[in-house]
């Protein structure tokens, strides 16, 4: 399940970055190559997300024929399914406009119009989980924004990594690449800081043991959020959370970006390698974030053992 969330979020992020770079390309020509390459990446990543969703289903053939089966428009899976279904032809059109160099204005207008849909694909992965409202970790208040930010951050890293690889192995290296990488660096600092802030707010929310009054107004019910907080930050998932998300996914990229900026002249010969490590680190952190959130959802409130997993004693 975490693969579809990762690739779904990544595809949304990649498209938003591609359109932003396309718009920047109006004034700064060095972004054109980066924008074109990123726009080609979106469709395969989105297709990969769709494939993972289909394989996750017990009846993949019915999932592929979702227009005939999705009927409940109160379900986020239906809304998300349609947004992915709508995104595929639009993303393909956008990439085709790049490939055939038809009309830059039409392409940019289409990109701006489609960006919210792809942004929503990233956002909805959080909404989808929070539909299971008795899972304390899957908060509708925090997860969608966290996944949206992570989608853009991993989108930056994915496009940046492809750009670095392309510059080094795919074509003759241009002088313009350092300017593009510097702007990506600034964006990474921004989105890493936003994600750290979101994670801190999310964990604060969980650890504060929020109580909620249910629909009837009769019950003030603790929703097990403290258990979820401890499970993630001190329990089985703690190494993944601290070393994986905070360390590998956010802190290391932040440090490497600062090193790139401060010691620019000293590290110039190795800048592509450092950028490559930074981008790979962000992508790994993005996968681990989904891993922690998905597996943290095993914990329901109050903590119960799934009846089907309980062994029924013989005899008696």
């Amino acid at each position: 399940m975490l693969e579809e969330f990762f690739f779904g979020g990544l595809s949304g992020g990649l498209f938003v970055i591609a359109v932003a770079a396309d718009l920047l390309g109006i004034k700064f020509k060095q972004f054109e190559k980066f924008a074109r390459m990123t726009s080609y990446l979106v469709l395969p990543v989105l297709a990969l997300a769709g494939a993972f969703i289909a394989f996750h289903l017990g009846k993949p053939e019915r999932g592929i024929l979702f227009p005939f089966f999705f009927k409940n428009y109160d379900s986020w899976l239906v809304i998300g399914g349609w947004s992915v279904g709508l995104a595929v032809p639009l993303v393909a059109t956008y990439a085709a406009l790049w490939y055939y160099k038809i009309n830059a204005t039409i392409r940019r207008v289409l990109g701006v119009i489609v960006s919210p849909i792809l942004g929503f694909v990233s956002f909805y992965t959080g909404l989808l989980l929070s539909g299971a409202m008795f899972v304390p970790l899957w908060s509708q208040e925090y997860l969608p924004y966290l996944f949206l930010n992570s989608g853009v951050l991993t989108g930056l890293a994915g496009s940046g990594l492809m750009y670095v690889l392309y510059q080094n192995f795919g074509s003759s290296k241009s002088e313009e690449s350092s300017g593009v990488l510097r702007i990506i660096g600034y964006a990474i600092i921004f989105f890493v800081l936003v994600e750290l802030f979101e994670l801190q707010r999310f964990m604060d929310h969980l650890s504060s043991n929020p109580v909620k009054i249910d629909n009837s107004g009769y019950f003030v019910a603790p929703n097990g959020s403290v258990m979820a907080y401890e499970y993630v930050t001190q329990g089985v998932l703690a190494p993944w959370f601290w070393w994986g998300i905070i360390g590998l996914g956010l802190t290391i990229p932040l440090i490497l970006t600062f090193i790139e900026m401060i010691f620019n002249k000293v590290i110039q010969p190795y800048v592509d390698w450092i950028s490559g490590v930074k981008f790979a680190s962000i992508l790994s952190g993005g996968i681990i974030l989904r891993f922690v959130i998905v597996w943290g959802g095993e914990l329901k409130a109050p903590l119960t053992v799934i009846p089907q997993l309980n062994q029924i004693p013989f005899g008696g």
Binding site: H56, K59, R62, G63, L77, G131, F134, G297, T304, Q308
Partner: peptide, 24 residues
């Protein structure tokens, strides 16, 4: 009609829903 997305198994607070290993 079921696509076996398993959303219901997560949504049920009573863990009363399972995926049938034969029909999937």
């Amino acid at each position: 009609r079921c696509i076996a997305c398993k959303s219901c198994t997560q949504a049920c607070p009573y863990d009363a829903i399972y995926i049938d290993p034969e029909t999937h």
